[in-house]
Write a protein that binds this DNA or RNA. Structure first.
Lengths: 195, 195
DNA sequence: ACAGAATAACTATCCCCATAGTCAATGGAT
DNA sequence: ATCCATTGACTATGGGGATAGTTATTCTGT
């Protein structure tokens, strides 16, 4: 149901076509919940069938159309319901930490590579998350701009603050991951320099 | 393939039946890669078919048997291969941070509940991870004890250190999550005390 | 002697998601 | 005029995992 929630979240800011929604997943919600377009198109259809969104056909080319989806009142209610519902925290699944737990089975230089990749991955993500946070704070991000236009000025502070807050969580976690991997590189040096 | 790696990792310490493997998932590898028994039994079968493990029938009751799985040389090779292979870091999927990003849509008291649950969840996990780390360090955990018996004393330091290191990563992340949620509670207080 | 908990080994089903395509229209460059 | 990148909208297939069963055996306490 999280994909659905992500789509509803996007549609509370502005109506979107499937393609546009898929693009937003690369820039906004996608930072916390990613999904390929092959998942998005059928999900929007299902949501339309259930009355959460309205699909409006708009012309596209001379003999073709595309569908633009508008959130309905039922859709907003469903989103609010999801927002009010506590998440259930499923079991962890973390291949990187699993692999690290058995580093004695791997070649030392490979383990260093793994950790360097870990650092590189989170460094890259940190750049994106920090940039995204900035774009939220200065309202330059597309979705947030549309959202702020739709809602009264007195709500703007909260809207922006919560999104920045979410990114801050990602950033804190990413920093923790990178720091951990850096400590790992030191650990490997101390354990694997046989002499 | 990570489930398979987790099973191979367990079996490098000692032979196990499907049931025993499932139990181990609750205490050892399960902290980084959880799986229900309904996934474990068929996976062990598949691994047997591929020659990664040997399934030995042992009597169970008067007219029944159970299968105990022993890792084969091919299995160890497969595990080493996995250990040498860099992971690919898929897209993020984090419902808690997604929900936090849209807190303005929820009731303020509910958002506090969500964050309190977040803290409670990670507090509980932190307890388990810290305890598990201690049991690794003092060799009291079942799987680590079996593993240390199987491998020469000069390797013990590394075996223990890497597992402790993995848990330290989980702990650091858990602490970051709890701290983030605590900051969130403060943020809500500052935003939602309208006056 | 018996109950109930724990041990043991499965199966079935559905959903989510990943991967990898197909087919069509548009806009800009050469 | 046509080529190509981009926009746009899909479909097909398979695997992994969640949930929820079923059936049988052994052990422990009373």
């Amino acid at each position: 149901m999280s994909l659905r929630a992500a789509l509803l979240a996007l549609l509370t800011a502005e109506p979107l076509t499937g393609y546009e929604a898929a693009k937003r997943f690369d820039s906004s919600v996608g930072h916390v919940w990613n999904a390929p377009d092959s998942q998005i198109y059928p999900e929007l259809r299902r949501m339309e069938k259930e009355g959460l969104v309205d699909g409006v056909q708009v012309p596209w080319g001379p003999n073709s159309t595309k569908t633009r989806y508008y959130i309905t009142e039922d859709g907003e209610r469903a989103f609010r319901d999801w927002m009010d519902t506590p998440l259930d925290y499923g079991p962890l699944r973390d291949a990187a930490h699993m692999q690290a737990a058995y580093f004695e089975w791997a070649d030392a230089e490979r383990t260093r590579d793994h950790l360097r990749r870990h650092i590189a991955f989170y460094s890259g993500m940190l750049d994106r998350w920090r940039a995204a946070r900035e774009e939220i704070l200065d309202h330059s991000q597309r979705t947030i701009a549309a959202r702020l236009e739709k809602f009264p000025p007195e709500s703007h502070e909260r809207i922006v603050a919560y999104k920045a807050f979410a990114y801050e969580g990602l950033i804190a976690r990413g920093e923790a991951e990178a720091a951990w991997a850096r400590r790992g590189l030191e650990l490997i040096d101390s354990l694997e320099t046989e002499d």
